[in-house]
């Protein structure tokens, strides 16, 4: 039985902090759980904290990219925070640039990024020309 990574909700953001060395099934489980949690909670953002993660291989890298694209489809942004320098160096050499995944150095910066995003989108929604039906 693979372990489940807890998904925490702070206001409109879902927070996942990976603390242990996950096997591949646990990685896939997390991907599915997160997609469901985004829908159930209506959260506008997902933060994945990998401060404690010692390696990101192509399997975990693919999961991160998949989470970013599927939350985008479900109207939520994703920010990856806390990547270690050695992990970044290894990912680039491995050939994984995680192009579609946004990153921030700290949890605080990641949360701010999502807030800014949301404010920007919220702004569009109530723009006067749109409200006027133009």
């Amino acid at each position: 039985m693979s372990e489940r990574v807890p998904i925490l909700r702070i206001r409109q953001v879902l927070l996942v902090s990976i603390q242990t060395d996950l096997d591949d099934q646990a990685v896939l489980l997390l991907q599915d759980d997160l997609a469901q949690a985004v829908v159930d909670s209506g959260a506008h953002g997902v933060v994945i904290d990998i401060t404690a993660v010692e390696i990101v291989d192509s399997f975990v890298g693919r999961m991160l990219a998949t989470i970013a694209s599927l939350s985008r489809l479900l109207d939520a942004g994703t920010v990856l925070v806390g990547m270690r320098p050695a992990v970044a160096i290894t990912l680039v050499e491995l050939g994984l640039s995680l192009g579609g995944v946004r990153t921030a150095l700290t949890l605080d910066k990641g949360l701010r990024m999502l807030e800014d995003d949301h404010a920007e989108r919220g702004h569009e929604g109530i723009a006067p020309d749109v409200a006027a039906g133009a």
Binding site: D21, E54, I55, V56, D57, S58, F59, R84, P85, A86, V87, I89, T90, E93, L94
Partner: peptide, 28 residues
Amino acid sequence: ARQQVRALAQQCRLSLVDQTKLITAASE
């Protein structure tokens, strides 16, 4: 496998970056 390689890499006193690269390669 990852855990065993991590222990060996530390025993071998590889740098942190080299440890990370070796464990990642082993995982793949």
